[in-house]
Design a protein around this nucleic acid. Structure first.
Lengths: 166, 166
DNA sequence: TTGATTTCCATAATTTTCCATGATATGTAT
DNA sequence: ATACATATCATGGAAAATTATGGAAATCAA
């Protein structure tokens, strides 16, 4: 499965319309089991991640993996109900329009402080949508953390450890 | 099967009429085997959940899954009888009207303290209907619980464990 | 009849769809 | 490479359809 990669900055009009970057559309199309040439792909936007000033976009395929994991938990267990709250109540289906745009409801724009511009950030199996300024801050925070503690090499070495466990 | 996602706050008039959020209607339509374009879908409202100040709405398809689970229990077992009580005697069929509304009987509104406004909360295979204030409290309770006990990570890791069991 | 319930109509606000345009890019033949 | 034709993309505006909601007429029940 191909992944969401790269960054793009697009305009948001006062109805909340934004273009999804063309590169991301291709991934959404591939990831939507109902999609076929000529149709407009669906996606899911999750807005409920704690401590995170951004929205997250998932292809239908990716979100179904998560949904199915939740569905395998005991139906009325506390854990499942909490997860449904975090994942389902705090998310919405959206379908791209004919021009490759979606509309971000006002509620979500306010939540992540998006007004006239949105940054789309590829994150592999999902992508994020940021207020441009907040995105820069978040990037700087990561950079700072990495350089101050010289973490980069250590971080990448994590990858090999994971591999060894498989 | 698509899932109930997102939150919506709608007015309840003094006859008990409320609009079902349009996004939820689509799911109810898809989930009702008798539905076809032009008709109004049915749903089931369960009001028998203990310790929970909300109503729960199921598509016909979803409630049948739950019903079947109950039917798989020994016919005259105590457990089955109790579950039939909670799920069957404490629930009703409702059909949407021409405008996408249902009427919530006074009895149910009193039960969950709904007066002029109701919040609809997507919970995957079902949705919940809350008094707005009670919903906020419930959400805060979850938040608090998650952050105080640093449970979020643990909760998400549950998903990975589930995966490993397959 | 009288109160309650259901059906039907009306409307403002929102959302969706459709069309238009300039900017980029992609391609093709000379 | 250059020039020209063809797509695709990001964006704006406006028409059309849908939603949420209130009120009134029609039906029903006791």
């Amino acid at each position: 499965m191909r992944r969401f990669r790269g960054e793009a900055e697009n305009k948001v009009d006062n109805k909340g319309r934004v273009s999804i970057p063309a590169a991301f559309r291709r991934i959404l199309e591939e990831g939507d089991p109902d999609w076929s040439s000529g149709l407009n792909p669906n996606l899911v936007i999750v807005y409920g991640r704690r401590n995170r000033k951004c929205l997250e976009g998932y292809s239908i395929g990716s979100i179904e993996i998560v949904d199915n994991l939740v569905s395998n938990l005991p139906r009325y267990s506390k854990e499942r109900e909490i997860l449904e709250r975090l994942l389902n109540s705090q998310s919405i289906y959206i379908q791209l329009d004919e021009n490759g745009r979606i509309i971000l409801p006002l509620k979500l724009r306010k939540l992540v402080e998006i007004q006239t511009t949105a940054v789309f950030v590829g994150m592999g199996e999902k992508f994020q949508i940021w207020n441009p300024t907040n995105y820069i801050s978040d990037m700087n925070l990561i950079e700072k953390n990495l350089s101050e503690n010289n973490l980069e090499e250590e971080l990448y070495s994590l990858l090999d450890n994971v591999k060894n466990q498989n």
